[in-house]
Amino acid sequence: MNGCGLDETSRSATEARLLGLEAERALASQAGDQTGDWVTSDPDCASERLFRNYTPHRMRVIGPPRDFRMRLRVGWSGSMALLRFNTGVELSQVPTGRFILVTTQVSGWSEIDTQAQSFSGGPGLMVVDSARSPVRKRFSADSERLHLRLGIAALDGLYERLTGKAPARPLEFAPCIRPETAMHARWQSVVRMVLSCTAPSAGPDAAGQPAVPDLLRRQLEETAMLMLLTGHEHSGAEQMAGTPAAPAPRHVRAAEEFMRANAGEPLTLAEIAEAAGVSIRTLTAGFRNFRDQSPMQQLRDIRMAAARDDLLQGTETGGVADIALRWGFGNLGRFAGDYRRRYGETPSETLRRR
């Protein structure tokens, strides 16, 4: 374990505990389809609830099962939550590629193992779960964490607006926001700002008003994403540090839209170029210059992501072979190998997790 943790009496730890109290008040005021307060003493029910809100995983209770209790309070249209276990718990999580999860330790202790590093810490520890990196977490019996979930599609879109290019590969973030750093303090400020807007309004005109209008929520989410992209270490930071490139031309964006809409069809390069209104040579040059890959490589990435989404839905979408063939992967052995290199597990393992 490296030194990403915090002293229990540090200023950051104290502020994290106060942040937890603010979150309790703010989340208690929330209502809606994607909000709620769930309490259960059944590990299976707890695991199912975590799957619905986050990612596929394996959960292991550390300690007497009879002492198990989980409380999950969710608000802000499902993007913010407080999670607490009354017993020690180990979670082995599988990424979905759909969101980034930034966690602030409010109380107790966590140990985190990622492909990049391992670390641990108490109140104030901040962890960034990248969208495609498996992670194993162990929590103490009194551990409570505040989660902020950010959609990867919106994050990639903001990255492209800032740099003029889509990420050349999936963005991977350093898994720990180190304590007593400027980024640590800034992230606490962002979360506190979100909570202040989430808390119930006061005054004679507050009755019946939503705590967070959709427009304000989107702006706050973008502020949080901008903070991550500009203030925290990630795989696309070098490109962001350079001079912003020109936006991708219209024919590249048109080709991408066409491929997403027709990913299940046996598309050829000529068909994609025709849909984009340019020659094959122009289309290929555009993708090389603005996407750092060929159009067909981009199509393969789109299909791989679609296949993973189907596998995460479970057997109702078919078996591994059915799903692979549905998305144009005729060579099942190659599909399984490419899938494992990208997601850290086999297609069958993803299907079984559901």
Rank of each mutant, 00 (worst) to 15 (best):
residue 4 C to H: 13
residue 9 T to C: 06
residue 9 T to G: 05
residue 10 S to Q: 10
residue 10 S to T: 10
residue 13 A to T: 01
residue 13 A to D: 00
residue 15 E to W: 09
residue 17 R to I: 00
residue 23 A to R: 13
residue 30 Q to V: 05
residue 30 Q to C: 07
residue 31 A to F: 05
residue 32 G to W: 04
residue 35 T to Y: 10
residue 36 G to S: 04
residue 38 W to A: 05
residue 41 S to V: 13
residue 43 P to W: 02
residue 44 D to R: 15
residue 46 A to Y: 10
residue 47 S to N: 08
residue 48 E to L: 13
residue 53 N to H: 13
residue 60 R to M: 09
residue 61 V to I: 10
residue 64 P to K: 13
residue 64 P to G: 09
residue 64 P to T: 10
residue 65 P to F: 11
residue 65 P to H: 11
residue 65 P to V: 15
residue 65 P to L: 14
residue 66 R to C: 10
residue 67 D to F: 12
residue 67 D to P: 13
residue 73 R to Q: 09
residue 75 G to K: 00
residue 77 S to T: 04
residue 81 A to E: 02
residue 82 L to A: 10
residue 85 F to D: 08
residue 86 N to F: 00
residue 87 T to G: 01
residue 88 G to V: 07
residue 91 L to A: 00
residue 92 S to F: 02
residue 93 Q to R: 00
residue 94 V to Y: 08
residue 95 P to I: 01
residue 96 T to Y: 06
residue 103 T to I: 10
residue 109 W to H: 09
residue 109 W to D: 07
residue 114 T to G: 01
residue 115 Q to E: 11
residue 117 Q to E: 05
residue 122 G to P: 10
residue 125 L to S: 10
residue 127 V to L: 05
residue 129 D to E: 07
residue 129 D to C: 05
residue 130 S to A: 04
residue 133 S to P: 08
residue 138 R to V: 03
residue 142 D to Q: 03
residue 142 D to Y: 00
residue 144 E to R: 03
residue 149 R to T: 15
residue 152 I to W: 01
residue 154 A to N: 01
residue 156 D to C: 13
residue 158 L to P: 07
residue 159 Y to F: 15
residue 161 R to H: 05
residue 163 T to M: 04
residue 165 K to P: 03
residue 165 K to D: 06
residue 166 A to Q: 03
residue 171 L to V: 08
residue 175 P to K: 06
residue 176 C to L: 03
residue 178 R to A: 03
residue 181 T to G: 03
residue 181 T to A: 02
residue 184 H to W: 04
residue 186 R to T: 04
residue 188 Q to V: 15
residue 188 Q to R: 14
residue 189 S to W: 05
residue 189 S to E: 12
residue 190 V to N: 07
residue 191 V to Y: 11
residue 192 R to T: 07
residue 193 M to W: 09
residue 196 S to H: 06
residue 196 S to E: 07
residue 200 P to Q: 00
residue 200 P to C: 01
residue 206 A to I: 01
residue 213 P to G: 04
residue 214 D to T: 15
residue 225 M to W: 03
residue 226 L to W: 03
residue 232 H to A: 02
residue 234 H to L: 01
residue 235 S to D: 03
residue 238 E to H: 11
residue 238 E to M: 14
residue 240 M to A: 12
residue 245 A to C: 14
residue 247 P to F: 13
residue 248 A to V: 08
residue 256 E to K: 15
residue 259 M to Q: 11
residue 262 N to P: 07
residue 263 A to W: 03
residue 265 E to P: 02
residue 266 P to Q: 09
residue 276 A to K: 08
residue 280 I to T: 14
residue 281 R to F: 12
residue 281 R to L: 14
residue 290 F to L: 07
residue 293 Q to T: 06
residue 294 S to D: 03
residue 295 P to L: 07
residue 295 P to Y: 08
residue 300 R to G: 08
residue 303 R to C: 00
residue 305 A to D: 10
residue 306 A to M: 14
residue 308 R to W: 11
residue 310 D to P: 11
residue 310 D to K: 14
residue 312 L to Y: 00
residue 316 E to W: 12
residue 325 L to G: 05
residue 331 N to M: 02
residue 336 A to H: 11
residue 338 D to N: 11
residue 339 Y to H: 09
residue 345 E to W: 05
residue 346 T to H: 14
residue 348 S to P: 10
residue 352 R to W: 12
